[in-house]
Design a protein around this nucleic acid. Structure first.
Lengths: 187, 187
DNA sequence: TTTTAAACTAAGCAATCGCTTAGTTATGTT
DNA sequence: AACATAACTAAGCGATTGCTTAGTTTAAAA
């Protein structure tokens, strides 16, 4: 009936995701996406509607990629030690050519204005809430831990992860590991 | 010999600074600066050379503003308690109409790409280094604190401050205070 | 009072932004 | 083989970006 697509949407989105991850949302232009994805602007818009659509699919792709270390945390039975393991996994996950890129989600949360791009913001907040919920359930595994403290500690851990996203662009690997060690030393 | 300026550069830079603080570097256009500063683009470029120049002066202005709470930390003799005080001071400092704006410097560090705007990046990193040095000297005030740990803890505290800059846009005041409390609870 | 130079206004520069559209190519159906 | 239709190419849309420039106004020096 008609011509076949010369690309698979899964493949080109993964390339787009890496571009957004490195550059952020605004700084990634449609022309750059064109080159990185290897398809024409027409194809981009016909497959994903608009730039926001490309990004939302990129977040889905990012979620899939990070899902393996998220599942490790999900099935962990070591309480806070499982979370610490997740922090190290995350550090490795966000490394490329011994260069840290931070977290796609956190990077974008910090970049997007409150009013602008509400759909993007909703998707990002939902992702963050999922991670925080895992922190809470893992903290509750520790018998001696006070229940009242769990929510506070979850916020604290989220803050540390947020910090690591920026810190990973400025600090070296050793410093990042020190941050994790101090974070969990007395928690 | 010639006409007088109808504005003082100090006054208009303070307005520019607040705009950058709220919106970030890229998202603040020269047209927006024009309106906020109340002067024509020609005056902006004749006084500050270019947009980057306006921003660099804005960072100087920001430093002056934050200097009072920095000096409190500088003259503090309570070791880590002085740092905790600084965290709360910073939270109040970055609040406007019960809305948190984060830290101008941190916001921009996270936004600017490594290669782009190197002058901006240098100014920002220098500012961060000054804060970290204060953390180190205050930590050393505590006699029982192991010297080896001080540098690690300084990185940890920097990471917490970085985190708070993002967290302050997503979390409420109570949560932010919880983060500070947990941070210093066992340090 | 005339001169002169800086401070102003406003229009417009090239480049880039996200996005669209007219026209061509390819492919499965009849 | 002829048709129908989706996938492609490439040019270009209006809006906005940082920045400049030609022309006018103002005020201090001569």
């Amino acid at each position: 009936m008609a011509r076949k697509k010369q690309y698979t949407e899964e493949e080109v989105i993964e390339k787009a995701m890496h571009l957004f991850w490195r550059n952020g949302y605004e700084a990634t232009s449609v022309r750059m996406l064109e080159k990185e994805m290897g398809i024409n602007q027409f194809s981009i818009y016909s497959s994903f509607k608009n730039k926001q659509g490309v990004f939302l699919e990129s977040v889905k792709c990012y979620k899939k990629k990070i899902n393996s270390i998220k599942e490790t945390l999900q099935h962990s039975n070591n309480g806070i030690l499982g979370i610490k393991h997740y922090f190290y996994d995350f550090l490795e996950f966000s490394t490329e050519n011994s260069k840290f890129k931070g977290c796609l989600v956190t990077n974008t949360v910090n970049e997007i204005k409150d009013n602008a791009e509400p759909l993007v913001m909703i998707a990002l907040k939902q992702f963050a809430a999922e991670i925080r919920a895992l922190f809470v359930s893992n903290l509750k595994q520790d018998d001696q831990r006070a229940t009242i403290e769990v929510e506070k500690q979850a916020d604290f851990l989220m803050n540390t992860i947020l910090g690591l996203s920026i810190a990973s662009k400025v600090f070296d690997k050793n410093q990042l590991e020190n941050i994790i060690e101090v974070t969990f030393a007395n928690l």
